[in-house]
């Protein structure tokens, strides 16, 4: 189950962060997302380590904490998408698919003429779309 998704701007500032847990661990998730930016930095600054996939937007597993898995995605404009999930056995294809849909939702949200680039995303539509994507995560593979 996805517990948190986040959009992080190119100055590493949060643009959108939403957790989907019943339990009150949102602060902990904030910390996890924030810490995973270190890994993103590390991968971006040392592209050799991440292998031949230099132009790949999908960063893969960033940060296996004990209870969560954190995946990352980096757009061309250096906007990062972070996904925190409690599923310990996640298929790469599912994560990629999720990020692809999340990215297009983000693109639609920032293409809004009333959105100022670099500011937090406050669109309600975007939030609804993201929760839809989150809910359908992993379903396609299961069904």
């Amino acid at each position: 189950m996805i517990v948190c998704v986040a959009v992080v701007g190119h100055q590493n500032n949060p643009l959108y962060i939403q957790s989907f847990t019943e339990a009150d661990d949102a602060l902990k998730l904030h910390h996890i997302v924030h810490c995973s930016l270190d890994v993103v930095d590390e991968r971006v600054n040392n592209p050799k380590r991440s292998g031949p996939t230099l132009n790949e937007t999908f960063l893969g597993l960033l940060y296996p904490t004990e209870n969560y898995k954190v995946y990352g995605y980096l757009t061309n404009t250096k906007v990062k998408f972070i996904l925190v999930t409690t599923d310990l056995d996640v298929r790469d294809a599912d994560v990629r698919n999720f990020f692809r849909r999340f990215h297009s939702a983000y693109v639609d949200a920032v293409s809004n003429p009333f959105h100022v680039p670099g500011k937090k995303i406050t669109s309600r539509t975007f939030a609804e779309r993201v929760s839809g994507i989150v809910k359908s995560f992993g379903l396609s593979s299961a069904g």
């Binding site: 959108y16 962060i17 939403q18 957790s19 009150d24 661990d25 949102a26 602060l27 904030h30 937090k120 995303i121 406050t122 669109s123 309600r124 975007f126 939030a127």
Partner: peptide
Amino acid sequence: SVAGIQSLGFKEC
């Protein structure tokens, strides 16, 4: 301050 961002209502704050 913005409605779109979730407010944190954690117990252990």
